[in-house]
């Protein structure tokens, strides 16, 4: 299987990339690691007319401590993120993505801009309430996690915008857990749950729970969060809150998992992720 024909540009600056992308029109696509786009193109489920590679644009890669958090260049590979232990749950989730070869190519910017609800990093980004920096013909802007994921494979990043970096708060004081349920370790998540918990003397000061592959986009499990926030943290209160993890979700079923089963998994994994986040 091979992609349909397309034109290719490998600009050497960000400005050039943005102008090439906007001149390319609606069918132009950015190419980062290519591990979401190229498989779709090979199966001819996507057929862009122009690919604008970010491979030669300098300054888009690397992890920097900034503003009480981490600024991660959009072209930073999953493998590099996985090795950066200071990134906590982000590093852990990155280490669970597919396999080493994919982690060596796939990028955080590509993953979040693609917005696949079955992806791991979009969920972590949503839970961590990160921010994406995107640059387009009209300059740079920030997109908050809550604004990022619009619908199935659709994000707030404009067709002529380039994601340049992803900001992840340091989450000091938060415990974390990311539970990914797969049939095989190289698979996409059947369901995944990211939990972040800040506790104060046994009381839940803040909690964020986000779900992978439970709908068209990554989702926050608001009911669980509300049930736990301000409560004392115990296996019982966690279990009770986790029971509401699938509330309001409408997960897509497939050959391996009915929606009911996925909802069940969301509850089980939420409990486990919360337990991990609270040191349980």
């Amino acid at each position: 299987m091979i992609p349909a024909n397309f034109d290719y540009a490998a600009p050497e600056s960000l400005d050039e990339a943005i102008s090439t992308l906007s001149q390319g029109g609606d069918d132009a696509k950015l190419l980062a690691g290519g591990h979401s786009l190229l498989p779709l193109m090979k199966l001819r489920l996507a057929a862009p007319s122009l690919l604008v590679s970010l491979g030669k644009v300098p300054g888009l890669s690397g992890i920097e401590r900034s503003n009480g958090g981490f600024s991660i260049g959009a072209m930073t590979r999953h493998a590099e993120i996985a090795d950066a232990e200071e990134l906590g749950v982000t590093a852990h989730a990155a280490s669970l993505i597919a396999d080493q070869q994919v982690r060596n190519r796939g990028t955080i910017g590509g993953s979040i801009a693609h917005g696949d609800s079955a992806g791991d990093l979009p969920t972590v980004f949503l839970a961590a309430e990160g921010t994406v920096t995107a640059q387009g013909p009209n300059g740079e802007r920030q997109i908050q996690a809550t604004e990022m994921f619009k619908s199935f494979l659709t994000t707030a990043v404009g067709p002529d915008e380039v994601v340049t970096s992803v900001y992840m708060p340091a989450l000091d004081g938060y415990g974390w857990g990311y539970e990914k349920f797969v049939r095989r370790s190289e698979d996409w998540a059947m369901v995944g749950v990211c939990a972040l918990v800040k506790s104060n003397g046994g009381t839940c000061e803040d909690v964020r729970v986000a779900l992978t592959h439970m709908g068209a986009t990554p989702l926050r499990a608001s009911a669980t969060e509300e049930a736990l926030r301000g409560q004392s943290l115990s296996p019982e209160s966690i279990a009770q809150a986790a029971e509401q993890a699938a509330e309001g979700t409408n997960p897509p079923g497939d050959v391996n998992a009915t929606p009911d089963y996925k909802k069940h998994l969301a509850r089980v994994l939420t409990k486990r992720a919360l337990m991990a986040a609270t040191g349980g």
């Binding site: 199966l43 049939r183 095989r184 370790s185 190289e186 996409w188 050959v255």
Partner: peptide, 26 residues
């Protein structure tokens, strides 16, 4: 892990190695 699945219309659901799940070393 493995199963060849056709749906009720006879469409092959497990048409790639994404869905036809050979076990890996892990």
């Amino acid at each position: 892990f493995e199963q060849v699945v056709y749906n009720d219309e006879g469409q092959l659901i497990t048409g790639t190695f994404v869905d036809y799940a050979l076990p890996t070393a892990a």
